[in-house]
Amino acid sequence: MSEPRYGIWIPVYGNCGAMNHPLEPRDASYSRAKNLIRLAERCGFTTTLIAQHIINPRNQELDQLETWTAAAALAEATSSIEIIAAVKPLLFHPAVLAKMALGIDAISSGRFAINLVSAWFRPEMEKPGINFLSHDERYRYSNEWIRVVKALWSGEKVNFQGDYFQINDLKLSPAPIAKPHPRVYVGGESEPAHELAAKEAHTFFLNGRPIEVIRETIAQVTQKARYRSQPLGFAMSAFVIARPTDQEAEAEYQNLRAMVLAQDDRSELLKGVDSEVVMFKNMAKYPGVGSNGGTAAGLVGSYETVAHRIAEFTKIGVGTFMLQFQPFASEMERFSTEIIPRVQALTVENEAIASLKK
């Protein structure tokens, strides 16, 4: 068991998991994102994810941080943390996106990655007049799109004739600093998402789920990726509530859950969701706090409980934890102080046990 990486979701919507916590500002500004990512860097976090929407899916009147301009600025404002920018292929021609990514790769000295998201919120495509393809066709489009992007990242002259894109004698320079190219993360709960990740991803993003569900999903996607030359990595989203005791953590969970139930009006969001998106079909099955599975991963409990659960997820193949907190800054610092050292100790202990068994 190796020690996992830890990352944070930048609060691009201005809040986290539909809450409006009294100690947390509703602030989607770049300034807040910069302050949080710099704090995360100081706290030992090694990666961050910036989700992408052009309008706020929960309420189109609210602010929404723009992903790619923020990613470029955050690359300049930081020194060590990996910056992952989500991208929806329907919003960018692959040649344009490939060149933009190479620019941020250079600004960050090779710390940049992309999270390929095939889209689920209809209004941000339909309102500007972008054709919103059917669910499975979006994945076929994304598959061809990322092949073009990777080819252009190679530094070679590209000729590509596909169903959606035709590239003629195009070469992008300079070549990427990250080798062989920026990492590609892919997530999703549908069969097409698993197939795309198995073929094209460096790391597969899992939504927070109970450990038995995560174990099964890792096994399924690993089987699809069995012919790859390089193994597929796994990352998982989770919302953390850690306290000195399990009882205190449960009380805070109930407090946050009550905020969600009191304030969360998903009517606008759900009206815009593609009904074929599996993640939203599973929302009722895994209720809780936070987005992308949130507390369904079970990282709620005493410091010892949370550390042991992270260690258990690590044993089954989760190498990166992309985390949410509320209030964000203070709870992130608590995680750094109380949880990361405990997981480090468990890692050393488990490695020693494994060594004795050899």
Rank of each mutant, 00 (worst) to 15 (best):
I81S: 00
L196Q: 05
L270S: 15
Q220K: 15
F160W: 09
L62F: 08
T48H: 10
L62P: 12
P25Y: 10
R342H: 05
T314G: 05
N168W: 07
G319R: 06
P11E: 06
A51T: 09
S79N: 08
G319Q: 14
S355L: 02
F313C: 00
N168T: 14
A70E: 11
D274H: 04
E66R: 03
I310L: 05
A242K: 06
L152F: 13
T78M: 00
K271L: 06
I146E: 04
A329K: 12
P89T: 15
E137C: 10
T347R: 10
P327I: 15
R5D: 12
E216V: 09
F239Q: 13
E137T: 15
V221A: 09
Y303D: 00
A296F: 08
T305S: 09
A33C: 11
I83W: 02
A151Y: 03
H194W: 00
K285G: 06
V12W: 05
W9H: 14
M279I: 11
T46W: 01
K34A: 12
A72C: 11
P128W: 00
S109T: 15
M236E: 10
G233A: 07
Q324A: 10
N15M: 03
K179H: 07
L356A: 04
R226F: 11
V289I: 10
N292T: 13
